[in-house]
């Protein structure tokens, strides 16, 4: 938690307006595959748009479309430092 540059973040830690590139997708089986099928692969740029009124899920934008993910799902995605 001391060195912000070398530390990897997960997607759920970004705040609205921030963007980052996907580094790795954790998890397994259906959920991991579904994330990849929706275009979340290594190197994809993802932007956080906004959280739902109750705080979860959160809307993201990638590859020119909007996707909503629960926080527990976004937590599976490692991203590089925010752009």
């Amino acid at each position: 938690m001391t060195d912000a540059t070398s530390e990897t973040q997960t997607l759920d830690q970004l705040t609205p307006g921030q963007s980052a590139r996907v580094a790795k997708i954790n998890g397994k089986g259906a959920i991991r595959r579904r994330l990849m099928d929706m275009g979340i692969v290594k190197g994809t740029e993802i932007q956080v748009i906004k959280a739902s009124p109750l705080g979860d899920p959160v809307e993201y934008r990638l590859r020119g479309y909007s996707l909503s993910l629960r926080r527990e799902e976004a937590r599976l995605i490692d991203v590089s430092h925010a752009i």
Binding site: A30, I31, M38, S66
Partner: peptide, 11 residues
Amino acid sequence: QPPAPFVMELP
């Protein structure tokens, strides 16, 4: 059974 992924497009 793991919960079905929510992962949903907002068209």
